[in-house]
Every structure is written in C-alpha cells, then in structure tokens.
Nucleic acid binder design. Sequence first.
DNA 1: ACCTGTCAACTAACATGCCAGTTTAGAAAT
DNA 2: ATTTCTAAACTGGCATGTTAGTTGACAGGT
Lengths: 228, 228
Amino acid sequence: MVTLDITGLDGALGQRVYVALRNRILDMTLKPGAVLRKGALCEQLGVSRSPVSEALARLSSDGLVDIIPQSATRVSQFSMAGLREDSFLREAVEVAAVARVAEIRTAEQLKQLSRNLRLQTLLVEDEDFQGFFEADLIFHELILGFTGFPKVALAAGQMSLQLQRARMLILPEQGRPSEAVTEHMAILKAIKAQDVTAARSAMTGHLGQLISRIEPLERQHPEFFHRN
Amino acid sequence: MVTLDITGLDGALGQRVYVALRNRILDMTLKPGAVLRKGALCEQLGVSRSPVSEALARLSSDGLVDIIPQSATRVSQFSMAGLREDSFLREAVEVAAVARVAEIRTAEQLKQLSRNLRLQTLLVEDEDFQGFFEADLIFHELILGFTGFPKVALAAGQMSLQLQRARMLILPEQGRPSEAVTEHMAILKAIKAQDVTAARSAMTGHLGQLISRIEPLERQHPEFFHRN
DNA sequence: ACCTGTCAACTAACATGCCAGTTTAGAAAT
DNA sequence: ATTTCTAAACTGGCATGTTAGTTGACAGGT
C-alpha cells in the first residue's frame, strides 16, 4: 500500500490532495497503470470525495492520470511519442529562455549561477547524487527565472512533468553527473560571454542528453509504456 | 445578462460548461473583472453546482478566472506583464515549430499552406475580416501540426489564451490584414526553401506584430487591466 | 466626520446521497 | 472446454445539504 499524507501541506484540501498525489506520481511511487480508487483514497486521506475528485481532475488535465468515464482512473502510462513531444516543447522554451538570459543577465545573476555550479561540483565529488539532482533542477530554474518571466518557469515545469517522471527510471550511470556539470559550465560560460548562439546550442545539446537516455527505457520497462 | 447555452456541445456536463464559459471569456463577451456567481450560472444553465465548480476550477488553472477563496470568482483581468510573458512563450514554441517544419515539411504540406494562403488573400480582398481571422488561426495551427507533435499545437493554444482574448480589443486597422498576409507569405517561402534561419526570423517578426499592437491597449482600456 | 468593532448575508469548499454507464465473474447454452 | 449472456458489483458524474471563511454595511464610540 502506498502511503499518502496531506498533513504538512497548506491550502485547501483539494490542493493538498493534488500535491500529495502529484508527488507520488512524479517520484514513481505510484506506478504507471496503477488504478486510483476514489473510495480508497478518501478513506486513506480522511477526506470526502469532493476534494479527491477535484485533485484527480487537475491531474488529468496535467496528463498524469487517465480518467476513464464511469469506469476507472489510472496513473497514466508513458508513450515514447509523448515524451519526444514534451522534450521538443521543453527545449523550445528553455533554449529561448537561455538566449534571453544571455542578453540581459546581471552580475548578481551570474554570481548565483556560479555558486550553484560550484555546489554541483562538490556534490558530484561527494557522490551525493540526490543532492546533485536537486541542484541540477535549481540551475535550470534559476535560468528560467532570470528571464524576468515567472510564467516561463511554470510552463517549462508543466511541460516537463512526464520527462521528470521518466527520468526516475534512468539508471545511475557512471560519469554522467560529471558530464552534466561540464555541460552546465558551457551554458554558464556562454551566458557570461553574452554569446546567444553558444548559449542556445549548449542548452540544446544538454537537453538532448536527457531524451536520448529516455529512449532506451521503452525496452527496459515496457510495462510502463503504452502498447502501440 | 450574458447568454449562455450548453446545448449543442458534447461530453460531460462539466466539460460543456467549461467550453461554454471559455468561449464567452475568450470572445470578451464576459468582460475582465466580471463576477461569476455559481448560483446564477447553475440556474441559467440548468445544472447543479458540481459541474459548474469543476468548470471554474479548470478555467482557474487556465488563468482565465481568479477564484478568491470563500468569496467570489472573477473573470481575470489582463496584466501587460503577463501578456508579454505569454507572447514570449508563444514565440518560443511557434519559432521552434516553424524551424522544425522548414526541415521536414512534405510537398503535400506545402500545398496545404499555399491553399490556406490563397484563401487568406481572397478573404482580405473581399474584406471578410472575420473569415480572415479564422484562416489566420488555421495557418498557424497547420504549421504547429506539421511538426508531427500534436501537443505542440495544444501547448501553443494554451499559452496564447490571454493573447487571443486581448486580440479582440485591437481595433481593425487599415491595411493590417494585408500586411499579415505578406508576413505569412514570407514564412511559407522560408519553409518551402527549407531555410530554417529565415523561417525563424519571419515567424519572430510576425508574432512580434501582435504584442506590439497589444501594448497600447493598457491606455485604451485601463478598466480591463490589473492596477499595478 | 471618522475610525472601529460587530454581525448578518453572501460566497466557495466540503460532505454525502443518488444515478447511470462499465466491467467482470459466473451461469447457461453449445 | 468454449462461447455467450446476464446480472451484480463496481466506478465516476451529478445533485444537494452543510460548513466555514470573507465581505460589507451599520452601529457605536472617539
């Protein structure tokens, strides 16, 4: 039984249920194809069906669950085509963002990115891969935020939901974190130099690494993918 | 009183209510700042509060309405900053899309775009601006679709919701439709020539026209904008 | 005249009962 | 043993009663 808890979250009940379920889906605790029973969720969370229904509806519009009317609600499975689409969209937004940031970045912003990058280096040296994972996310969020457009980070996050979930399946690979740090350094270098073209291609190359590592997952974990 | 009707739409009640309200908001029949009363909507549509609540929740996550907890639900007002963000995001996606389409387009796809463009020319000559408006939308949707990534068109549409609404306020401008057709022709020409760089800059220039025409609206219609 | 505290009337959020469509297991027929 | 039909037990969608938080007006004090 998956443990779910909405204590410690704030906001309305529906919001809390949504966040709790979303986290469990994104960290792959709730596996693709798993059936979500409204009644069971209500009992487990100690709330009524209203907030649960609302949460499931939102997850459905996020593409994280599939609601089959009058039948069942399932955690959505991956489709490689869908993941490629998500990657294309994410790349479109992050590349546009890094291009803008390369033009308008301030000294203070460069300092923040440098600081994050030094942290990444240390975490990789210490082989703290969980910590590196988080620092990696923050590096990208910093760049997205430096566009001055808060919605850009939100949109990129929204489009990357399935990618983030699939990423959980990628086996830790010898030397990959260190490569990623090198790629991040190239991005920062281009931003610092205000070289828009270099920033674009550095980001394109970096993001391309993820989808190319996701591609093999369809053979490794066919049970999580749509039969096509 | 705004007329609302969900007959003629299919799907679940919540879906129909959502579409009906969404259309009224996007065509500016429901004005920014207008209060949406659940009770009134239920009575008017002849449904209970459940599907209406669901619809409002979805509109809220689309950013088309603001739900003030325990208080009221309002049609969201514009913020120029938000519109600039939407424009940035839309540009990121549509430019990436046109770049890809320039590379992979087929002869049949070129034919479809040419056909649409000829239609645009005729509609402008006939001064059928409503018809042109729709053909314009279809031109962009065709390009987005030709990426082979259905989600791209959906994402672009999602990001452009506020822009589409604001566009309704732009006064018909002498000669603008004909200019737009010229810009569309430049885009098609670059796609035909498989000139990725030209396609990107043609699309960038074209989309930049819209936001530059939206900018003056804040002075012309201050009542529709957030006080900042 | 103006600030302040209280209260009534409103709202969205939540709980729960009900209904209709889907699924599935088992019985019946072949 | 296999297929087909049927019915019961699920599910999600809808209606509606209940709760709790916000707001705005009004009364009373300064």
